[in-house]
Amino acid sequence: MKNKQKNFAQSRSLRNISTHYCPGCGHGIAHRLIAETIDELGIREKVIAVAPVGCAVIAYDYWDFDCSEAAHGRAMAVATAIKRVRPQNIVFTYQGDGDLAAIGTNETIHAANRGENISVVFINNAIYGMTGGQMAPTTLLGQKTATTLSGRDARLQGHPLKISEMLAVLPGVKFVERVSLHSPQEVMKTKKAVHQIFKNQIDNLGFSLVEILSPCPTYWGISPKGALEWIRDVMSKEFPLGRIK
């Protein structure tokens, strides 16, 4: 190992502190991939991030670049304005499934439809983590949560919402890819996709989104390793991996 860059802890855009995330949570990996990408593209001093409401609400404590808070679901409205006011900056949102695909669906669809030249990192863990494990729009059928005690039932709660596929049909959307964190190989693919959504913005190509299937061992009620296996064996069957647009 000669390449010093591979020592992730030394990423310039990532503060060398412990996160508040649970053991085995995917947020830590996703944060790191974004920080690495920003360092590699040399855009740290141009980046303005918009953090969500949810477990990643204090993402700005972990990243070492400019960052704004947004009310729950409104990250893309906030990002739209930042990018319009400061087109020379690189603006991205980091949002969970509840934030992006439930309370913020309207902002999501319309920012995408306007073709805003922003990058979106969408963390799909099929659950509300911060509030204690309630059903998310992406919760799988049969999945037990604090608000679907005997499992999500399509007749009562509808089907898992495939927001990425929905967004892909919009002409304003340039790039959509679904990736996963369930193994080191998949993490590397995720890194590539994250890199791509930032590159697209730099090249002024328009709205680019990466959906990351991410483990939540705590509220799935399984071990960190079991959570990755569940993504591989179950979740990615409902949410197929790969380039959507």
Partner: peptide, 13 residues
């Protein structure tokens, strides 16, 4: 580097 890539907490160098 598998361990480093999968570590959610950047503990491994």
């Amino acid at each position: 580097r598998m361990c480093m890539i999968i570590c959610p907490d950047n503990c491994i160098e």
